[in-house]
C-alpha cells in the first residue's frame, strides 16, 4: 500500500436490494469507478500497475444486505469538509455514481496508518431471517408452539459449551466449533414460517458467518423437528473493540484537527 503520501478517509456505506447479489470484488470495482467519476484526488500505489489505495473491510457474502459496510481510501490531500468536493458532500456525490442500493452514509478523515478494517473490526451484528419448516407430522403445530420450539432451539445453542459444524474453508470441508464466535442470539419475531433473529458474532480469533449459525441451529433442532434455512441476512453493525471501548468504525480512528498551538 506504500506509494504517494496520503490523506486517509473512512467511508461507511449500505448495500441494499438487488445489488446484494454482486460480490465483494465487484463492490470494490464499482467504488473505484465512482471515485473516478467524482474525480476524487486518489493516492496511488507505486509499481508497474499503480492502483488506488483502497482498503475494504470484512467481506459480505453474495446475497447478504448491509447497513454497515466500510472502506478506507487514501486521497492525496485534505478535501476539506464544506464546499464542493468536501467530505460533507461525499455521501451524496459518491452515491450518485454508485449502483442503486449502494449508498454512502458517512465519511470521516482518519489517522495515518490506522489499523486496517480487516484487522480492527472485532464484532458484527446481523438481523437474519430464517425459514423454519415445521414438522411434517399429523396435527400441524400452532403458531405459539413454533415460537416456543424456536426459542428452545436458540436456548440450546446458547447453552451448548461447544457446537461443531462442518464448513468449507479454502475449498475443504472442516469441522469447526462455532459456539465461541456466537456472542449473542435472540428471537425477534416470527411471521408465518419466517423467524427473525438478532445475532452478534465475533470476527476474531475465528469468525463465524450467519450460515454457520443456521447450521448450528439445525445441529441442535433435532427434538423440535424444525429445519432452518437462511432466507435474508442484513448486517446492521460492525464494531471495533479496544481497551474496553466499543467503537463504531467511523469514530474509531479520528484524525485530530490541525491545532495551531497547544491547548492551554
Amino acid at each position: 500500500m506504500r506509494g504517494e503520501a496520503g490523506f486517509p478517509v473512512r467511508i461507511r456505506f449500505c448495500k441494499r436490494g438487488p445489488v446484494r447479489f454482486i460480490g465483494h470484488r465487484d463492490v470494490a470495482r464499482n467504488f473505484e469507478r465512482a471515485f473516478r467519476i467524482e474525480e476524487l484526488p486518489l493516492a496511488f500505489t507505486l509499481g508497474f500497475s499503480p492502483r488506488p489505495k483502497v482498503g475494504f473491510g470484512l467481506a459480505l457474502s453474495v446475497g447478504h444486505e448491509s447497513d454497515a459496510e466500510y472502506l478506507d481510501v487514501e486521497l492525496t490531500r485534505d478535501p476539506g469538509s464544506g464546499g464542493p468536493g468536501g467530505l460533507d458532500r461525499f455521501p451524496e456525490a459518491i452515491s450518485a455514481a454508485l449502483p442503486d442500493g449502494i449508498d454512502v452514509t458517512g465519511a470521516t478523515p482518519i489517522v495515518d496508518r490506522a489499523l486496517s478494517l480487516q484487522e480492527a473490526v472485532t464484532a458484527v451484528e446481523y438481523r437474519i431471517e430464517v425459514t423454519c419448516v415445521a414438522p411434517d407430522t399429523p396435527g400441524v403445530a400452532s403458531a405459539s408452539e413454533i415460537v416456543a420450539s424456536i426459542e428452545a432451539t436458540v436456548a440450546s445453542v446458547l447453552s451448548a459449551p461447544s457446537l461443531e459444524i462442518t464448513r468449507t474453508r479454502k475449498g475443504r470441508e472442516v469441522a469447526e466449533d462455532v459456539r465461541p464466535a456466537i456472542r449473542h442470539m435472540e428471537l425477534l419475531e416470527v411471521d408465518a414460517a419466517v423467524a427473525s433473529l438478532h445475532l452478534e458474532l465475533a470476527t476474531q480469533p475465528r469468525n463465524a458467518r450467519p450460515g454457520d449459525v443456521v447450521a448450528a441451529l439445525n445441529a441442535v433442532a433435532g427434538p423440535t423437528g424444525l429445519v432452518f434455512a437462511e432466507w435474508r441476512v442484513l448486517r446492521t453493525h460492525q464494531w471495533i473493540e479496544r481497551v474496553g471501548a466499543r467503537l463504531e468504525p467511523l469514530e474509531a480512528d479520528p484524525r485530530a484537527p490541525v491545532r495551531k498551538a497547544w491547548a492551554s
Binding site: 438487488p18 445489488v19 447479489f21 454482486i22 465487484d26 446475497g63 449502483p99 442503486d100 442500493g101
Partner: peptide, 23 residues
C-alpha cells in the same frame, strides 16, 4: 417478475447476471 425471480437467484451461480441496474 422480480418477486418470483429473486428467490431463485439465491440458488444460482453469479446471480448478478440477472439483476440489470448497469450505469
Amino acid at each position: 417478475l422480480w418477486p418470483r425471480i429473486e428467490p431463485l437467484l439465491a440458488r444460482v451461480e453469479k446471480p448478478a447476471r440477472y439483476i440489470g441496474m448497469e450505469r
